[in-house]
Simulated scan of single mutants.
Amino acid sequence: MDVDTRLLRYFVAVAEEGSLTRASARLYVSQPALTKQIKQLEALLGAELFHRSRAGMSLTEAGRALAERTPALLADWDVALRRTRQAAGRAARVLRVGFLASAANEATQRIVAEFTRARPGWRADLRQAAWSNPTAGLATGDVDVALLRLPFPGQDALRVEVLFSEPRWVALPSAHPLAARDVIAFEELWDEPFVAAPVETGPWRDYWLAADERDGHPVRVGAVTDQPDDWLSAIANGYGVALAPESAARFYARPGITYRPVSGVSPTRVGVAWTPADDANPVVQDFVRCCLAVRRSDCG
């Protein structure tokens, strides 16, 4: 019998969290979708894996037997998959660099140029990820290194070097009454509807809603988007406002949208991230060194 490794990952998350709600936030999937996948796995195995109750999800005897072996199995598969992809990259002389749209700025071109000088014949293949994938594919082994907005879910399990920080501004419809202000106090935005990332992104969504900086004031969500173009359209159409990096005013300028500085909200940071398994990977470390070299030149 062949079982999709995704189903096993979902099973492990629920087993470790003991809750569909917490597991869905950890996996960045909706709770109904996670419930469906767990039932699919149980049907494939012909065994009930969890006792379900109001208190949460607890393992059955069959579930405990599976839980004892699955983490090691998945870890071995992850290592095999990552090494296979890296071997293919080395053969093609390609470094896969994941990034979120807002994490790639003017410095990215200089980083790539520096990497090309450090590794003649190599190419940095830049791969943009949706906001529902805050590690830009790094956590799943789809890329070798990533340029990311901090903080992001799973950050503690990765190596991260901070490259720069910048203020968070607000993007709002140009016809909005606050658009004429030079600076907007964050508390003036608390009652505004916000354009948010998908709920499955958990801490990432909360950070860009500044949920912890509202003095307990509840968030109003006017629209949910996963891509920059949809995000811009939602704001321009008046469905809500959104916090954004200062650099978004340069990279995502669009008629009908105005960007303004915001006081009373913390700045955002960008970092280069890689897995601990790549601490000794010379190509990944060359890219990291290029990132740090550009950071030093900017600071100097």
Rank of each mutant, 00 (worst) to 15 (best):
M1D: 11
M1A: 14
D2P: 13
D4N: 08
L7Y: 06
L7P: 07
F11A: 12
V12H: 02
E16G: 13
A25R: 07
R26L: 11
L27Y: 01
L27S: 01
Q31N: 02
Q31E: 10
T35I: 05
I38E: 04
I38A: 03
L41H: 01
E42H: 00
A43C: 13
L44T: 14
L49R: 07
H51N: 13
R52M: 11
R52L: 12
A55Q: 15
G56S: 07
G56Q: 02
S58L: 12
S58Q: 13
L59Y: 05
G63C: 09
E68P: 15
A72I: 06
A75P: 06
W77P: 00
A80V: 09
R83H: 13
R83T: 14
R85T: 13
R85Y: 09
R85M: 14
A88P: 13
A104P: 06
I111W: 05
V112R: 12
A118Y: 00
R123G: 05
R123P: 10
R123D: 05
N133M: 14
T135S: 14
T135I: 07
A136G: 12
A139Y: 06
V143S: 00
V143R: 00
D144W: 01
L148N: 02
L150R: 05
L150T: 05
A157D: 15
L163S: 05
L163I: 08
S165R: 12
R168M: 15
L172H: 06
P173C: 03
S174H: 05
A175K: 12
H176S: 04
P177R: 04
L178T: 08
A180T: 13
F186Q: 09
E187A: 14
E188F: 03
W190G: 03
W190A: 09
E192W: 06
P193T: 07
P193Y: 07
V195I: 08
V199A: 14
G202C: 11
P203G: 06
W208H: 05
L209E: 05
E213C: 09
D215I: 00
V221L: 05
G222S: 01
G222M: 04
D230M: 00
D230C: 01
L232G: 10
G238W: 02
Y239G: 01
G240L: 03
V241H: 09
L243W: 02
A244C: 11
P245S: 06
S247G: 01
F251I: 10
G256T: 09
I257R: 00
T258I: 12
Y259N: 00
R260E: 02
V262A: 07
G264S: 02
G264H: 01
G264C: 06
S266I: 08
P267C: 10
W274M: 01
D279P: 05
N281V: 12
V283I: 15
V283E: 08
R289D: 12
V294P: 10
R296P: 04
S297P: 10
C299D: 14
C299E: 14
G300N: 10
